[in-house]
Amino acid sequence: MSSPEESTTLAKPRSLAADAWYDLRRSPIFWIASIIVVALVGIAAFPGLFTSADPKACSLDFRFAGPGPEAPFGYDVQGCNVYARTMYGARSSIEVGLFATLMAGTIAFALGMAAGFYGRWIDTLLSRSLDVIASIPLLLAAIVLLKRLSATGGSTGVWSVAFTLGVLGWPVAARVVRSSVISAKQQDYVQAARMLGAGNGRIMLRHILPNAMAPAIVVLTIMLGTVIATEATLSFLGIGLQPPAISWGGSINDNSAYVRTAAGPLLWPAGFLAVTVLAFIMLGDAIRDAFDPRMR
């Protein structure tokens, strides 16, 4: 009985996700960004695979020494192996980026969903507090918060930096979640679920969330890049990760005074940082273009 209509099925991918994937597979930017991101995550997870040198074994005997078999990028002002430090530095950058984004994402989804779904005064309250937090400059607030943390004896390790950036970074994503929840909420299939007697929890988790996730994930991918840049900035300013923690920002700070005598120790971590940030932003951008129906 269904056969006469059968022929139209599966002719062309028609769902948004399928269309987006179709576009993404043809996007060189997506592939370049993905390869860089995968490589960086690999380095961050297993830096020992990429270098056998100890990044903390520094000796002033090697101060500004040139590249060697163990140290293809040479040695820095403290006589540390620049290559080893760059590899190990990836870990803190990626860790801070991931944890901060994860945290911001969790807050954004919870509050954005609540605001968009319940509307009325809950929305007004959440949206206005969101505006307040969004109006605080991220870097300035992070400096103040981290200063407080270290002044009260708290550690300024990966966790506290990630926490600080996560707590301050969620408003943009929350706004995106809220607006896509509002548009998903009015869809017919949400009404249909309600007519079947589905409760709010089921409607939010099974019907609204899966259909409201894509734009927020794009924003969070881009945010991951900016969080990594902010972490490096904080470490450069001496407020983020503190030695003996190894980070790109810290390395840039250590070697910035000697840029004229030896640029290598500064440029390698800076280059990695730039490429990492760029890769995440490009990835998010490519996904956003693929998901944007106006682009097709």
Binding site: L16, D188, Y189, Q191, M195, L196, H207
Partner: peptide, 17 residues
């Protein structure tokens, strides 16, 4: 809800994709 159900107008938007 078990006794009254509805068939909606637009079959393209009434099913969760």
């Amino acid at each position: 809800r078990r006794n009254i159900q509805m068939v909606m107008q637009d079959p393209y938007t009434s099913l969760n994709p």
